[in-house]
Computed example of a mutant assay.
Amino acid sequence: MSQSEEPAVRALRELREQLAATIGDLETAAERLAELAELRTAGRSWSEIVLDEDRPLIVETITQALDDLGAVGSRFRREEARALHQEEMSISRIGQLFGVSRQRISALIHGGPPADRPVRAPAGDDG
Rank of each mutant, 00 (worst) to 15 (best):
V119E: 01
V50A: 06
R32W: 10
R13C: 10
H110W: 07
F76K: 06
M1K: 11
P7S: 01
A71C: 04
G127L: 02
G99H: 01
L84Q: 09
Q86R: 13
S45K: 11
G24M: 04
L69F: 05
R77Y: 08
E87Y: 11
S4I: 07
L36C: 05
I94K: 00
R120G: 00
R75P: 03
H110R: 10
L108P: 03
E17D: 15
R102D: 06
R55T: 14
R16W: 09
P118N: 01
Q86I: 06
G95H: 01
Q86S: 10
S47Y: 11
W46G: 06
M1E: 14
E14A: 12
I23H: 12
E17Q: 12
R93Q: 15
A21F: 05
R82M: 08
G127Y: 02
D54L: 13
L15A: 07
L33W: 05
I94N: 00
G111R: 09
S4C: 08
L26M: 11
R55Q: 15
R10G: 05
L51R: 11
E87M: 11
R117M: 05
L26Q: 10
I91S: 03
R40K: 15
S90K: 10
G43W: 09
Q3R: 13
L12R: 11
G99Y: 01
R104Q: 12
E88L: 07
I23W: 08
D52Q: 10
P122I: 00
M89F: 14
R102Q: 11
R32K: 13
A71L: 11
L39S: 14
Q103W: 03
G43P: 12
V9Q: 06
I91P: 02
I109G: 04
I105L: 02
F76M: 09
E38H: 14
P118S: 01
A42W: 05
I105K: 02
E27M: 13
A11Y: 04
D52T: 10
P7L: 01
E60K: 02
R93K: 13
G111V: 10
R102E: 07
A123L: 03
E31F: 09
A115L: 12
H85F: 09
E14I: 04
A29H: 02
I62Y: 06
D68V: 01
R117S: 08
R77E: 13
D25M: 02
I58C: 04
E80H: 15
V50Q: 02
V72D: 03
L19Q: 09
G111L: 10
L57W: 13
L84D: 06
E53V: 02
G73V: 05
P56V: 06
G99Q: 01
T63L: 11
E5H: 06
P113T: 15
G112L: 14
A123I: 03
R32F: 08
Q18H: 03
G127I: 00
E17C: 11
S4D: 15
E5T: 14
V50T: 10
T61H: 12
